[in-house]
Each structure stands twice: as structure tokens, then as C-alpha cells.
């Protein structure tokens, strides 16, 4: 739930999602759900020449389970807030 909230605060920010098949997609985070499925707008694929089938794609839905990493805009992440929220969630295991 905590990480879901973090992603919600980052909507309309630019992120880079790296998938487990090594495809990296940069785009504007339009929405996220509790499974950490992600919708990206205005996307650009890293190393587009290697992924020609992605050229015409402007937005996409990414199933949460295929994500390896998401690079986040550090300036929009309050690390102190994150740590406090994590401790609070750890103290209340029902929310896990």
C-alpha cells in the first residue's frame, strides 16, 4: 500500500520503467493501481533502433509483474517521509 501511495504522488512526473525483458520505457506516469500496474503517456523507448516495433507507440499500460525497476525523479521523493511511513507500516503488519 505504501509503495502504491508513493507512485500516486508521482503521477504526471516523468519516470523510466525498466522491464524484466530489458526494455526501458520513459514516459509520463499517468496512473498506477494497487498491483503497481502502470500507465505511461508520451513514451520513448531506450535504444529505439533495437525495438522498431515500439516506434509508433505513444502510450502504454505495463503490467506490474513485468517491471524490474522504475527510475524515479529524486526531486519529487521526500526520503524522510518515506522512511517514517515505512516504519509506521512495519509497526502495523495488517497493512502489508
Amino acid at each position: 500500500m505504501l509503495i502504491f501511495s508513493v507512485f500516486k504522488t508521482l503521477t504526471d512526473q516523468q519516470v523510466t520503467v525498466e522491464l524484466k525483458n530489458d526494455l526501458s520505457i520513459t514516459g509520463v506516469l499517468k496512473s498506477v493501481d494497487q498491483f503497481l500496474n502502470i500507465r505511461l503517456d508520451n513514451i520513448q523507448v531506450l535504444d529505439a533502433a533495437r525495438h522498431p516495433h515500439m516506434m509508433a507507440v505513444k502510450n502504454c499500460f505495463i503490467r506490474g509483474s513485468v517491471v524490474r525497476y522504475v527510475q524515479l525523479p529524486a526531486e519529487h521523493v521526500d526520503t524522510q517521509l518515506l522512511e517514517d511511513a515505512t516504519r509506521r507500516e512495519a509497526a502495523n503488519p495488517s497493512k502489508r
Binding site: 507512485f7 525497476y69 522504475v70 527510475q71
Partner: peptide, 10 residues
């Protein structure tokens, strides 16, 4: 990477 989310299943 400056700030990274890592999915737990990996």
C-alpha cells in the same frame, strides 16, 4: 541511478 524503485519479486 539517483532514485530507484525495485520490484520485490526480483
Amino acid at each position: 541511478s539517483e532514485m530507484l524503485f525495485v520490484r520485490g519479486d526480483g
